[in-house]
Structures are given as structure tokens and as C-alpha cells.
């Protein structure tokens, strides 16, 4: 056995001591013994490499340990948002939203019966749609509204506001769907909501000029916290498998609110 073969054996099978096949060569080759010694020391020290302490572990554990609160009073009707029709264009942000809109359009189309498209289905007013379908139609239209708003605006403040409204729309629709046993659709919405928050709202909020952060983000963060509370209340009442997506929505909303608060603090002298 030569050194190359020996070291290949060492690097491939280092877990339980030097491989027996390499023993004879190791006994006679100082260079390979040195390689083995270095490898042993490296691997023994990997668990000692530094890593910062995680700050959100206990938060997540508490989230699972705390039973979702059940509201003592009947839930208020879901608040419906009226979208502003405004101006401008921000290519980067619009790309996310337009993609989201297209994707959601496809998703909504799948919810409708085969052969229908959302527009045709909406036109069939004489046939009442089941709740999940109705919500999907309404959502598709509202997402499109948001797409248009976002495509029209170049103002960073408006971009943040539109994204916050989009996330609110998704949360509202999720609560509607939660009453109709649409667990799979809810899961899809929870994922979509997470993307809007992580890839849309938070990055756009970071781009806001420092002097505009507090005025823009504070009402959004407060609204997010209130929304998270409503979702937490709604989760235990959701039908079927709807409670987990609502919990995810609540947590994502809380986390985003905290991130926005952090951005406000950054901008506070």
C-alpha cells in the first residue's frame, strides 16, 4: 500500500480509528501517521468550534408549551381591507408580488371545478360557491389588486404598506377558510404568507430611510401584533387540520412584528 491509498482509507473511514487495512502501512510510515494524528485532532475539536447562543429557542418552546388562548367572546367579523389604487413601480418588489399573484391565480384556478376559470366562475352568480371556493376567488382578486398597487408605486413607504396589506388579506382569508375545513388550502396560504413577510415586507422595511421608519412601521407592527392575537384565538376553533396553519400564521406575524420593532429601534437615536 502506498501513502495515497492509505490516506484515502483514512479520509473515508476515519470514524472508528484507523482502518485495519491501513494498519501495516501506518506502522511503517511516519508521514501517514502524522496525517492520521492531524485528522484525529481536527475531528475531536469540531464540537468545540464557537457558535453563538440562539435567542429564539425558548420563544419557540414557549409557543408550543402555551396552549392557544380561546376567546371568551364571539369573534368579530373579519376586517376587510379596501386597497388603495395608487401609482408607481418598484421592479424588485413587484417581481415578488407579481410572481405571488400569478402563482396564487393558478392555485385559485385549481380550486375551481375543472373547465372553469376564476373569472367565469365568479360570473356564475346563480350558483352559490362553497366557502373555500368563495374565499379563493375573493383572494385571487385581491391579490391582483395588490399586484397592481405594487406595480404602480415607486415610493418605498407605499411598497411596505402594500405588502403589509397583502399579508393582512392572506391572514383574513385564512381565518375565513379556517371555518370551512380547508386545511390544505390553509397550509398553502400559511406558506404564501411566510414568503410575503420574509421576502417582501421585512426586506422592503429594511430599505426604508431611517427617518421614515417609525412613522411607517409602528402602525404596521402594532397591527401585526393585534392580528397575531386574533389568529392565536382562532386556531383552537379551526375545523379539521386548520389549527396548525393558523398557529404558523400567528407565529410568523409575531416574529415579523418584532423584526419591524427592531428596525424602528435601529432608527431611534
Amino acid at each position: 500500500m502506498n501513502c495515497e491509498t492509505c490516506q484515502q482509507l483514512l479520509f473515508t473511514n476515519a470514524e472508528s480509528g484507523p482502518p485495519a487495512l491501513a494498519a501495516a502501512h501506518l506502522a511503517s510510515c511516519r508521514s501517514c501517521r502524522m496525517v492520521w494524528s492531524r485528522l484525529e485532532r481536527i475531528e475531536a475539536n469540531i464540537p468545540r468550534l464557537p457558535c453563538p447562543a440562539a435567542t429564539r429557542k425558548n420563544e419557540l418552546i414557549s409557543f408550543f408549551l402555551t396552549p392557544p388562548q380561546v376567546a371568551a367572546t364571539p369573534r368579530e367579523p373579519v376586517r376587510r381591507l379596501v386597497f388603495l389604487k395608487r401609482i408607481g413601480m418598484a421592479a424588485a418588489a413587484a417581481a415578488i408580488l407579481i410572481a405571488v399573484g400569478l402563482w396564487l391565480g393558478n392555485w385559485a384556478a385549481r380550486v375551481f371545478s375543472p373547465g372553469d376559470n376564476p373569472k367565469e366562475a365568479i360570473a356564475k352568480k346563480s350558483v352559490p360557491a362553497p366557502p373555500a371556493e368563495a374565499a379563493a376567488k375573493s383572494l385571487a382578486g385581491r391579490i391582483l389588486d395588490c399586484d397592481l398597487d405594487l406595480a404602480r408605486t415607486s415610493d418605498p413607504v407605499e411598497r411596505v404598506e402594500v405588502l403589509a396589506r397583502l399579508a393582512q388579506v392572506i391572514r383574513d382569508e385564512s381565518q375565513v377558510l379556517a371555518d370551512s375545513s380547508a386545511g390544505k388550502e390553509l397550509q398553502t396560504l400559511a406558506r404564501l404568507h411566510g414568503r410575503v413577510m420574509k421576502e417582501g415586507l421585512v426586506p422592503r422595511a429594511r430599505e426604508l430611510p431611517m427617518k421614515q421608519r417609525r412613522a411607517t412601521l409602528e402602525p404596521i407592527a402594532d397591527s401585526l401584533l393585534a392580528s397575531a392575537e386574533r389568529l392565536e384565538e382562532a386556531a383552537p376553533r379551526a375545523k379539521g387540520s386548520g389549527s396548525r396553519p393558523l398557529e404558523e400564521l400567528a407565529l410568523a406575524t409575531t416574529v415579523t412584528a418584532r423584526e419591524l420593532k427592531g428596525l424602528i429601534e435601529e432608527a431611534t437615536p
Binding site: F11, A14, V35, R38
Partner: peptide, 25 residues
């Protein structure tokens, strides 16, 4: 997977050879 672990070990041993004293196990 085996290949990647193999290459990582090979690279680490090479990079660390100047920082580990010459001692044999």
C-alpha cells in the same frame, strides 16, 4: 456524500498542517 466528506477531511488536514504540532498518535 462519501466524496464530500473525503474532500473536506483532505482539505482540512492540508490547511491545518502548519497549525498542528508534529505529534503522532
Amino acid at each position: 456524500a462519501r466524496w464530500r466528506v473525503f474532500k473536506a477531511r483532505q482539505k482540512l488536514v492540508e490547511v491545518m498542517k502548519d497549525h498542528l504540532p508534529e505529534s503522532e498518535s
